[in-house]
């Protein structure tokens, strides 16, 4: 564990808390893509199957359980108590392509053809693209509530810090995983446009509005 990874994980945890705070305070899930949230649940479940086979640390186990259960809870919130505030028409990304595309990539690139390893690779490629329905929704509406942009910023910062963590690990431990590094770089790149608007508008106290 290094400081970059620790801060990244805490940003990830923080992003989920911000999203829950948004839902609780506004009693609404407007602006949030159900598809992106559902993809994250699939990502966590397929990646953390090793909870049953491979113990890393109490921290690691706690975080895995938190990510799976919070993702499930967010879907429940969007489907049950906040159902009426969800706008299906804005959440129009064809996510079948993401689910299928990640499957093809996992079968081509997995390190080993075992069920757990292939599902792990699937989760990496699915996470790489899981934010796309949310970004499409943002593009369609052209603006977002400030708290939603803080959620997205924390999520993007978590990914960016993982890249710094991999550089650090390569230098200090000569540890590198080609699949997670490549997918992580693509995933972070998807946030570039968002980061630009966030830094130039939201942090200056203005509303998030696409040009």
């Amino acid at each position: 564990m290094n400081i970059f990874r620790l801060v990244a994980d805490l940003m990830h945890l923080g992003s989920i808390l911000i999203l829950l705070l948004k839902m609780f305070t506004s009693r609404s899930c407007a602006g949030i893509s159900f598809k992106t949230q559902a993809l994250y649940l699939i990502v966590f479940v397929t990646r953390y199957l090793d909870l049953f086979t491979h113990f890393v640390s109490v921290y690691n186990t706690f975080m895995k359980i938190f990510f799976i259960s919070s993702a499930g809870y967010i879907l429940y919130m969007m489907r049950v108590p906040l159902k009426d505030t969800y706008n299906k028409h804005l959440d129009a990304f064809r996510w079948e392509f993401l689910l299928g595309g990640a499957g093809v990539l996992a079968l081509v690139f997995t390190h080993k053809y075992t069920v757990i390893e292939t599902l792990w690779t699937y989760s990496i490629f699915l996470e790489m693209m899981a934010i796309l329905p949310q970004l499409l929704q943002l593009q369609r509406t052209g603006e977002a509530e400030t708290i939603t942009t803080h959620y997205l910023f924390a999520l993007g910062a978590y990914r960016a810090l993982y890249i710094v963590n991999w550089i650090y690990r390569y230098e200090t431990e000569h540890h590198v995983d080609a699949i997670s590094t490549m997918a992580g770089i693509v995933q972070t790149a998807l946030y570039c446009d968002f980061f630009y608007v966030y830094f130039t508008r939201v942090l200056k106290g203005k509303r998030f509005k696409l040009p």
Partner: peptide
Amino acid sequence: MGADAPKDEL
């Protein structure tokens, strides 16, 4: 490296 490396990241 790769599959033989312990998966210690989240």
